[in-house]
């Protein structure tokens, strides 16, 4: 799990161009959207791509993704349960 969380943080930084942020700056339990990391709807689409590209998980739309995308930790838990 810890390793997956670290890996996810790195993917997020790379794919969302979070150039000014280091993995250790991201609190795995803080919200990704809104007040937390401040991500938006376009980032949600990019995270859908991360799931598909690196973990073979297909999500249909961003509405379905809402609870899964709450934090890095919820994302990691979902990946653990669903990865192929």
């Amino acid at each position: 799990m810890e390793q997956l969380i670290q890996e996810l943080k790195e993917h997020l930084i790379e794919e969302l161009n979070l150039e000014e942020i280091a993995p250790e700056d991201i609190d795995a339990e803080a919200p990704l959207f809104g007040d937390g990391l401040g991500l938006d709807s376009i980032d949600a689409l990019e995270i859908i791509l991360i799931l598909e590209k690196f973990y073979g998980i297909k999500l249909k739309n961003s509405a379905e993704a809402k609870p899964i995308f709450y934090s890095v930790k919820t994302l990691a838990e979902y990946i653990m349960q669903n990865r192929k």
């Binding site: 376009i42 990019e46 598909e52």
Partner: peptide
């Protein structure tokens, strides 16, 4: 397939 939307927008 699997296209990032950011450069498009």
């Amino acid at each position: 397939q699997l296209l990032n939307p950011a450069p498009f927008i």
